[in-house]
Amino acid sequence: MEEATSNTAAAAPQRILRMTGISKRFGAVQALTEVELEIYSGQVVAIVGDNGAGKSTLVKVLAGVHPADDGRIEMQDARVSISSPTDARALGIATVYQDLALCDNLDVVANLWLGHELTYRGRLDEVAMEKQSWKLLRELSAKIPSVRIAVASLSGGQRQTVAIARSLIGEPRIVILDEPTAALGVAQTAEVLNLIERLRERNYGVVLISHNMADVMAVADRIVVLRLGRNNGEFLAAEATSEDIVAAITGATDNAVTRRAATRPVPGTEEP
């Protein structure tokens, strides 16, 4: 895991990726409308928004799970196309999904290397994979007793750690975390937040999706608000208050009403 040690010196944030005009439609649902997002190295950008605001969809566009219908994605000022998870991975975009996407029947090593196993003369190189797994988990100060137990037997925080560690295999530049603390207790949430800070120290561009304002304010540098599939404000964490952000999230209208309106595009919604 050279990448984890080589780029520890945090340089000035550099733009790694820029998305503009991203639109995505699922049948009758316009999930994203002309959304913009920028990702900088060594910076945590939080995406917040109500349920169904399109956060996960935006992330899936980046991850190649649901390619965008429309819009432009640039990396280092060159346009790129992401039409499959493999494309995203090749571009150095790693994703930790909201549902973790772990195989419960496989052990930790198998999950970490899934789809990218090391081989030696055509056979799985279990020894090399196990050794590197330990090294990676140590670097993340992960608390996992054994890498040879099925993932199902791990605690929520440990599973999250495995999912995050998995994203770091294969030298990514951007790590996307979709609600990494949603199912966790106080202590395990703190662990994951520490982990996110460690990713920032290692100069990854980190995208964090969360409903928890305290978590967002604790680790994010920049906060992007989505509402009904559109950008609805961008804040610097150091300068904004939770109230500002909550107002942008809810649009200062009744929640039930906005969710009903989410089934069709709202022409009047302002853009920043």
Binding site: Y97, L114, G115
Partner: peptide, 11 residues
């Protein structure tokens, strides 16, 4: 074990 996880892992 988990089709969706396998798909997202690039399998």
């Amino acid at each position: 074990g988990n089709v969706e996880a396998a798909r997202r892992a690039g399998i």
